[in-house]
Design a protein around this nucleic acid. Sequence first.
DNA 1: CTAGGGTTAG
Length: 624
Amino acid sequence: MSSTATLATTAPTHHHHHHRRHPPSIDRLTFLIDKSKSINHLLQTHALLLRHGLHHHPILNFKLQRSYASFGRLDHSVALFHRTDNPTVYFWTSIIHSHAQLGLQNLALMYFTEMLTNGVEPNCFTFSAVMKTCPLEPGKALHSQTIKLGFDSDLYVRTGLVDVYARAGDVVSARQLFDTMPEKSLVSLTAMITSYVKRGAIEAARKLFDGMQERDVVCWNVMIDGYAQHGMPNEALFLFRKMLAAKFKPNELTVLSLLSACGQLGALESGRWLHSYIENNRILVNAHVGTALIDMYSKCGSLEDARLVFDRIEEKDVVVWNSMVVGYAMHGFSQDALQLFVEMRRIGYRPTDITFIGVLSACAYAGLVNKGRAFFSSMKDEYGIEPKIEHYGCMVNLLSRAGQLEEAYEFVKKIKIDPDPVLWGTLLGACRLHGNIALGEEIAEFLLGQNLANSGTYILLSNIYATVGNWDGVARVRALMKSSGIQKEPGCSSIEVDNKVHEFLAGDRRNPRSKEIYMMIEEMNRWLKTHGYAPQVDTVLHDLGDKEKEQSLEVHSEKLALAFGLISTQAGTTIKIVKNLRVCSDCHAVTKLLSKITGRKIVMRDRNRFHHFVNGSCSCGDYW
DNA sequence: CTAGGGTTAG
């Protein structure tokens, strides 16, 4: 007994030495390679092979190469391949697969071509490997080759082809290949669903999904993520509940999609629930999950939680840092954002274009014009990052917030990229804030002439006129909108109570507690009146009398959500509201006052930023 | 030896 024990605990090198004259069997070596737990294990087995002169054995060599690749050591894998004379089709396929897996598509294709040049016949496995992440053009060439060789009906090859066309956005060809498949599988169905989801054809995707005979976690993830990525976050959460009810076990990718959905909804309670789900189910909070959590907490208005997650992520990458910097910035906590930026550089992270989105918006919110300008030039000069339209957007914000509207305009005109509607919208918004009619009209006219105007353009222009009391202008815009059939995008505010997200449109009466909500609105109006508040009827676009205008303001979606928050949460609780558009100025003023009257902290997320209303004032400093 | 799923943004 004791001698057996000694043998088992002997170091591997000794063990091998002991067997020098009796080389380990091929089976034993195969086992060692396949069961390697670490790269070191593998290196030891490799040494063993060399010692016994077995390194030319085709199967062992092939398995060794595959194992190196799976540990992310493509360098070893490639070296081994190049040392092999006349590699078999298996070996070629494996080296192609290893490159494709890591997204090295050009190299994968290069090996494929080389293989053909060497007179080695590809098989179904080879085609399946090389098609992975292959672009459309070479994909089409592969397609005809498979037809010539009679492989195109093979389940795996065909699924690969569906995926090639799907990834290239050619959903028609993908569907045709899919429909004519001799046999379909869960995977091919998922590939087709993915194709629809990528184009935003969620209905079509859902139809296929609903018709599936069997499902697995991947297809659930694709469908849930489809909703999350296409502005239907509530549906994503809804489908997730179905997934749990159907007893499927969510994984890391599931929670990533759902955290994004919670962030979009501002659904803090659901987000917290997911966070505990992650912890209870041993899903590792790696950089990906960590980023998603930080983003969710920031967008749900809880920066404290975002920071806690940030501090606890062991292996932070630049994306993790970015999400925290951006989180601080969008809440207007500029100093924290900039401090974190300094810290990340000190540790040695290289900022990316996203980092500068955070840094520049932080400067804009804090009015740090010169600092922002300096960051903007350092982007290119110091870090070699070409500014994108988004960065110009930040600069326009920065300059116009500081009142340097003309300079912002000049800035936009000098941009080499074509300015887009969002950028012009930012500038137009600045004109509203500074009551600069002349520039506002110039921009709006330009946009109308270029056919770049959207409903936001009209609304902003009208708001500019309203700011300076130019009612003729307001009326003109209204007429223009009417004649060109432009509809205002409906404002929608949501609030999460008891794990459920409640959405409100203006004048909405769909909520079961509607009656109480409108009673609360009346109560709010009485409070406001006592405090001498006069509704900003002038900002109302519609052709209505003052009384009606007042009434239309009273039922803005923000106010309905706020009233619902007041009647359905404990006194003293922070109320968190998410709005799809910018906050209207009447609602902003009302919310400020109500934060004082009710003693509640109110956090409102609008399309661009957060407003923290506390005791009668807002963190945006009335500039948004 | 094979096929399908992902994080930060004006």
